[in-house]
Design a protein around this nucleic acid. Structure first.
Lengths: 113, 113
DNA sequence: TTTATATGCAACCATAAGGTTGCATATTGT
DNA sequence: ACAATATGCAACCTTATGGTTGCATATAAA
């Protein structure tokens, strides 16, 4: 009953992933987490122009999309970048791109008759 | 005043792109357009379980994200897949992935002292 | 043991998003 | 000319979504 890590991402799972990426606040949170270091919520709130609770909500959206991981450390919750979601999104788009290339090839063959 | 086609996608432009991909209806519309053929709105409405107007709105979102192109042909509007948006999204994620790899390398070096 | 920090939870708000219905209009088919 | 198609536009509805404030609670610092 485990999940095949090499299985292609279903459109159904891609939706929340792309939706998570489709927000400027979350995109900038992700870029701040790209250093690979754990960041506490208060820290991520700094300079965001938002309240801590708003940032918390965004981080949870990112976590459900497997773009970040949260870990409680004492009184603070640290968030770390997680490449899982990023790789899933990448492979989904690569698949789409391949399909597109094949479609183009078929069209070309069809025209060349 | 023209746009450099090789310029990296700004996060600002990536947001509407990912947001466009973050909806199941639009994702399935895109897959139907992957055959490279122009499809009229009525046709795309078939089997969507939605009204023509709803589908029209989705198609316009996709068009603003440069994922499809519309062309009026007589009394019907045909939509065709456009790889521009797809490639922009791909390159954005590839960039992010590269940055992540570099961050990991730095962390590894730091740890190995 | 106070006091200050860092969060979680819940209620609430305004606006954006996804959908629908109704009506007008330009093309195509009879 | 007349009927049938394929759309566009606009108004309206409902529900997410992005944000906020207020309050309770656990942990760290004085």
């Amino acid at each position: 009953m485990s999940v095949d890590p090499t299985a292609p991402l279903l459109p159904r799972d891609a939706v929340p992933l792309f939706a998570a990426l489709g927000d400027s606040t979350r995109l900038s949170l992700l870029s701040r987490l790209q250093d690979g270091q754990p960041h506490a919520i208060v820290e991520l709130t700094q300079g965001s122009g938002l309240t801590r609770q708003a940032v918390t909500k965004h981080l949870r959206v990112l976590e459900r999309a497997r773009l970040v991981i949260s870990q409680r450390e004492g009184r603070e919750t640290r968030y770390v970048f997680d490449a899982t979601g990023l790789n899933e999104a990448r492979s989904y788009l690569e698949m789409a791109s391949l399909q597109w290339d094949r479609a183009i090839d078929r069209l070309r063959l069809f025209v060349e008759d």
